[in-house]
């Protein structure tokens, strides 16, 4: 059995080794547009014959999008519109692709005239990226292209996590246009998760259950939907470590300890 010092030495050997291994991924990152990813990137780049026209030509020109614009402006991404932020710039075209073809037959005068007549002026949205029909991996790539560089929250276990493997994309849970706050609130998480996990919802009708339908315990109290160290997307690194968050009296270690309970 290794002593604590031995383990510490092993830890300090392991860390640089892991760093070297992952640094080796630099080459992998450099070769990122390998075939399938290149295919997906083509899907999310948009029409190559179109030019970027800026957010004001999408939102300011069309009154029906006012609410979208409000939500967008109020989001973190909206704050990233400034060039000087040094962050990946985000606007409509970051996700929907370049929009010059969509508005090529429109003019401010036409929009204003239609507006005066009470007619909604539709752009040629079919020239934009067809987000809804993209493969799930490509949908997630739309978000990940920025969030891999942004260092705002860690999606460490996303790519090999159950949702990514089963082709559940970011879009399934996060609606960019629904609210300035893109996070899913704990209260909303139950409804969201049960949209797919109906059998789990049914089990909460049994007499012995955590107070989830009572709105005092939430799916995200125990599960990390972006992937995790543990099986079943548990929030912590194991079932015991997850349970003792709310049941700390069971944490231990105890004199007479369970065996391999994780």
């Amino acid at each position: 059995m290794l002593s604590n010092r031995g383990r510490l030495r092993r830890f300090f050997l392991l860390v640089p080794a892991v760093l070297m291994i992952v640094s080796g991924c630099n080459a992998l990152k450099g070769s990122k547009p390998i075939l399938p990813i290149r295919e997906y990137e083509k899907m999310i780049v948009g029409n190559l014959y179109a030019d970027y026209v800026g957010t004001q030509n999408c939102l300011a020109a069309c009154h029906e999008h006012d609410q979208l614009r409000l939500f967008f402006d109020a989001s973190t991404m909206g704050a990233q519109l400034k060039m000087e932020s040094g962050m990946p710039l985000v606007d409509c075209e970051s996700c929907h692709g370049p929009g010059s073809l969509a508005i090529k037959d429109l003019s401010p005068e036409l929009v204003a005239e239609n507006d005066r007549l009470g007619i909604k002026t539709a752009c040629d949205f079919k020239t934009l990226i067809d987000l809804k029909n993209l493969p799930a991996t490509a949908q997630s790539l739309v978000c990940l292209k920025c969030h891999t560089a942004n260092a705002t929250f860690n999606l460490h276990n996303w790519n090999a996590g159950p949702h990514a493997v089963h082709e559940v994309s970011c879009f399934e849970c996060h609606d960019v246009h629904a609210s300035p706050d893109l996070k899913v609130t704990p209260l909303a998480s139950g409804r969201l998760c049960f949209g797919c996990h109906q059998s789990v919802q049914a089990q909460f009708s049994l007499a012995s259950h955590h107070p989830l339908k009572e709105g005092r315990v939430f799916c995200v109290d125990c599960h990390e939907p972006h992937g995790s160290f543990a099986a079943k997307d548990l929030l912590q690194d194991g079932s015991k470590e997850t349970c003792v968050q709310c049941h700390p009296e069971k944490r231990g270690p105890f004199l007479y300890e369970h065996a391999d309970v994780m």
Binding site: F11, L14, V18, I34, I37, A149, N154, H156
Partner: peptide
């Protein structure tokens, strides 16, 4: 300690030590 490469590569690796 968590480390991972770009999320967007054809290869994505992540490692955790704790």
């Amino acid at each position: 300690l968590k480390l991972h490469s770009s999320y967007t590569g054809g290869f994505v690796t992540s490692a955790t030590v704790g």
